[in-house]
Amino acid sequence: MKPLRVLVTDAETTKALAIVRALGPTTEVWTASHSPAALAAWSRFVRKHLVHPRDALGTYAGWVLDACRRHRIDGVIAPEEKSSFLLAGHRDAFQAENILLAVPELRVLEKAIDKARTIEIARQCGVRTPATRIVDERRQVIPAARELGYPVVIKPRHSQYWTGSCFIPTDGVRYATSERELTHALASLPDRIPAPLVQRFVPGRGVGICVLLGHDGSPCAEFAHERLRDLRPTGSGSVLRRSIAVDEELREASLRLLREMGWWGVAMVEFRVDESDGRWYLMEINGRFWGSLQLAIDAGVNFPRLLLDVMRGETVAPPPYQTGVVLRWWLGDLVRALHILQGRPEGFTGCYPGRLSWIKELFGRQPPGTLNQVLRWNDPWPALGEIVSLAWR
């Protein structure tokens, strides 16, 4: 049987590299990016790399579809939120060409992209969230914070807000312990985005529940990890993480929420566990592949391969995986060091590492058996490519 020819977009990302390596032994993998020096393109498993215009967002889906036609691509995997969003609105065009598209319907995807809609759906199906106020205008934020009580988190509704012609990055959450800090946080938000959410701050550790659902909502794969070090010490994607067993309660909450949305495909549901009482709270849904995807693959869950099987209508059963596997993203650890040196952000009341802790984190002993996310001796060139592609940006 002829192997599938699959196009992986966003080749400048580490998750694209993980997908390429996971599919490469059994699939003909092509990559695409705005950068000719994109990270994943350095992998020995890539047959050919395609370069698209950097800022032509309005024609992006058309470019991908045309590339699929010209090169006889069988399926497309878009690891990033922006590319998923741009392609989801053109699912019918891809289906008409019999091209598999690993993206949910746009109406479903938008429920995960908009954090306010995610919170509303979680409330409807009984998934615990931090105390949250959803407001229509920015002038309502300060009264909402007074009602919740400080400290509060100011969370933009979108990571990247689509205006209809461009994406506006919102640069993550802000924190405030007083009205003065809140006013400063609001002033730092971009002007053209919707009013943010206001949430009561929840201290604790992050846990990610990663799943692959079939078109009928059945679980086809699952995986869980805990964050040992975050890129941003206030909370973000991780640079050091460990595979753990899936908590039964978090699994049930994740499946309930995703099924309520009508989800299929891959997603990571993020929770924060309050270490003072062990209660968990929903943070958000990443309706795409996650940055620590390589950890799941190393532990035994080949999500990209299983996703292709689901897209082709095959029956997929959740495979077992190994707990205690640790994965480190070295370059991410270096970026974390820069965040630490900048000091504690205004309004953040959680635990924050000391200014010299980065030395031990970066150069000290890591947990036994720690794997490197990018450097692999059977595919070494991406380690060099990561540095080159970073400089290219």
Rank of each mutant, 00 (worst) to 15 (best):
56 A>I: 00
383 A>F: 14
17 L>R: 06
196 P>A: 13
298 D>R: 09
309 D>F: 00
183 T>E: 11
265 G>K: 02
56 A>K: 04
103 V>I: 15
184 H>G: 04
56 A>F: 00
156 P>I: 10
181 E>F: 03
364 G>P: 03
259 R>M: 00
225 H>G: 08
359 I>P: 07
195 A>N: 01
53 P>F: 04
342 Q>D: 15
96 A>K: 12
290 W>A: 05
184 H>N: 07
67 A>D: 01
42 W>F: 15
24 G>L: 08
339 H>A: 05
278 G>Q: 14
159 S>P: 01
49 H>Y: 11
62 G>P: 01
114 D>F: 08
243 S>D: 05
71 H>I: 04
241 R>D: 00
17 L>I: 10
60 Y>F: 12
164 G>L: 09
286 N>F: 01
315 T>S: 03
59 T>V: 08
367 P>W: 12
335 V>N: 07
323 T>S: 02
204 G>M: 13
63 W>H: 12
234 T>V: 13
158 H>I: 01
171 D>F: 10
197 L>S: 05
70 R>P: 06
199 Q>T: 11
311 M>K: 03
248 E>F: 02
61 A>Q: 11
3 P>T: 07
62 G>T: 09
284 E>K: 09
196 P>C: 07
144 A>W: 13
105 E>Q: 12
337 A>V: 02
262 G>V: 08
300 G>N: 06
306 L>Y: 11
286 N>L: 00
89 G>H: 00
325 V>A: 12
138 R>C: 11
277 D>H: 15
296 A>Q: 08
206 G>R: 14
13 T>N: 00
345 P>N: 10
382 P>E: 10
386 E>N: 15
